[in-house]
Design a protein around this nucleic acid. Structure first.
Length: 473
RNA sequence: GCACCUCUAGCUCAAUUGGCAGAGCAACGGACUCUUAAUCCGCAGGUUCUGGGUUCAAGUCCCAGGGGGUGUACCA
């Protein structure tokens, strides 16, 4: 039985050794003694010599690995070293040197098993191809699949850069409840749970919006939250039941300020991560540089279908156009909802973008403020990139009387069978009644943003543990 | 939810028309003093996702179920 130490103290990493020792001649002995730790990914035993490849967390499959060089005459328990299995974790102390063939290596002068792999690692060359296994056993995937490590490192970088970007603009990060007594802030079906001591139903949040706006009413003029939200919907390459949304609210701003922040943030992330705002997504090029195109929903419908429509268009005519374009409608839909459906089915997927689609009907925007020029419309926009909604933002509705009317309209839609309609949130109205300043609000789907930056086509490649059915016994 | 595809050794994959389930890697035993997915010799490894059916004979065909993938719907 190998004794496993309780702690181990590496003095450096594979990447650092590489960086510190570029271009050594074959057969060099540097005199530098290091201690490193990681996982044995490859092994080549040749009689009285043994070569291993150790991976650690310091880089990718090129930079984050280093060769180990063991010799029968100097490596303690050489037999044991040769018997190590792929997947074992080990610590090694020895001199940094190059082999006769010039490969930078650490000579194994001392070594220590840190973990035995009791299960055999996947094929060292082919890795894992079974998607199911990659998601269920992410702990294996991360070691074996280079792209997977890269994507999740990038995700972490995106979150970190986003925080810094917003803090630099005087936004304050806050945390609001995940358990909501009333689900609100978005149109979606919630997950329900129950609090035993309080004996009450609770809902996992579908959006942090209403709490964040309460904070602005409370005097925190610029707030943001990177919020895990939960929606009880189907799963797909673009949807995971729990996902991460950035929401921010800025007092005294409006939706045009939100467009600027969105453009600047996305371009900033692209520059920091890729050094350019021109990315490849799938097999197409994507230019994220500001400014993004802006067009109203009605303009886009006209562009894609040739139909000049408006909220004044007779409703039967709108229904007819929906039918022509294969859009399913319910009798309860008003003109606003019909226009939105028409836009989504005929335009959205065609927009490679990036583009801000502006001016959404009041009927489908219960939390946005009336458009200052277009009656029946609100000052709302969605950012569409690569045919997908990336963000949603508006000049926030701040008038409690108007908000009450919007809520009541939602209740009517709910009574008419829309199980995603909102309900009246009296406390939110009370907060408004104390006075809520004009503000702009923005929500960005962070998972989808990372997908764009990492050039992956399924959300499961940017969510560490995506929702799956439990494995059968 | 619906449609299509898929499931074979720990991993990656073969298996002709329905005719004895195989290989590489890993593991295990051995050889090898400069390897780079090391190489060589040897050994072992299976409820072919599950359950039914057709057949002399099923990994293969049929039915039902399960997991996964893709598309579609739902999802601002």
């Amino acid at each position: 039985m190998t004794e496993i130490p309780y702690r181990y103290e590496p003095t450096t990493t594979a990447a650092a050794i590489r960086a510190d020792h570029p271009d050594l001649e074959p057969g060099t002995e540097t005199g530098t003694v290091v201690t490193i730790a990681g996982r044995l990914m490859l092994r080549r035993v040749q009689g009285k010599l043994a070569f291993g490849t150790l991976d650690d967390a310091s880089g990718d499959h090129e930079t984050g690995r280093i060769q180990l060089f063991g010799l029968a005459r100097s490596t303690p328990d050489f037999e044991g070293f040769c018997d190590l299995n792929l997947g074992d974790w080990i610590g090694v102390t020895g001199e940094v040197m190059t082999t006769k063939r010039g490969e930078l290596s650490v000579r194994v002068d001392e070594w220590q098993t840190l973990a035995k792999a009791q299960r055999s690692f996947p094929d060292k060359f082919h890795g894992i191809s079974d998607a199911d296994m990659r998601y269920r056993q992410r702990y294996v995937d991360l070691w074996v699949t280079e792209e997977s490590r890269t994507a999740f490192r990038m995700r972490s970088t995106v979150m970190s850069l986003t925080r810094r970007f917003l803090e630099d603009r005087r936004f304050m990060e806050v945390e609001t409840p995940v358990f909501h007594p009333i689900p609100g802030g978005a149109l979606a079906r919630p997950f329900t749970t129950h609090h035993n001591a309080l004996d009450m139903a609770m809902f996992l949040r579908i959006a942090p919006e209403l709490y964040l706006k309460r904070l602005v009413a409370g005097g925190f003029e610029r707030v943001f939250e990177i919020a895990r939200v939960f929606r009880n919907e189907g799963v797909s390459t673009r949807h995971n039941p729990e996902f991460t949304m950035l929401e921010l609210y800025q007092a005294y701003g409006d939706y045009s300020d939100m467009m600027s922040i969105t453009e600047d943030l996305v371009a900033h992330l692209a520059m920091e991560i890729h050094g350019t705002t021109t990315l490849t997504y799938g097999d197409r090029e994507l230019d994220l540089s500001a400014p993004w195109r802006r067009a109203t929903m009605l303009e886009l419908i006209a562009e894609h279908t040739g139909l000049e429509l408006s909220l004044e268009t007779p409703i039967d005519e709108l229904r007819g156009h929906c039918e022509t374009h294969g859009v399913e409608v319910k009798p309860s839909y008003g003109p606003g909802k019909l226009l939105l459906e028409l836009y989504e089915k005929t335009c959205e997927a065609e927009l490679w973008g990036p583009i801000f689609v502006t001016d959404y009907p009041k009927e489908v925007s219960p939390l946005s403020r009336d458009h200052r020029e277009q009656p029946g419309m609100t000052e709302r926009f969605e950012g569409i990139v690569a045919g997908r909604e990336l963000c949603n933002a508006f000049s926030e509705l701040i008038d409690p009387a108007e908000q009450r009317l919007r809520f009541e309209d939602q209740v009517r839609q709910g009574d008419a069978g829309d199980d995603e309609a909102m309900v009246v949130d009296e406390d939110y109205l009370r907060a408004m009644e104390y006075g809520m300043p004009p503000m702009g609000g923005l929500g960005i789907g962070m998972d989808r943003l990372v997908m764009l930056l990492a050039d992956v086509s399924t959300i499961r490649d940017v969510v560490l543990f995506p929702t799956l059915r439990p494995e059968q016994q």
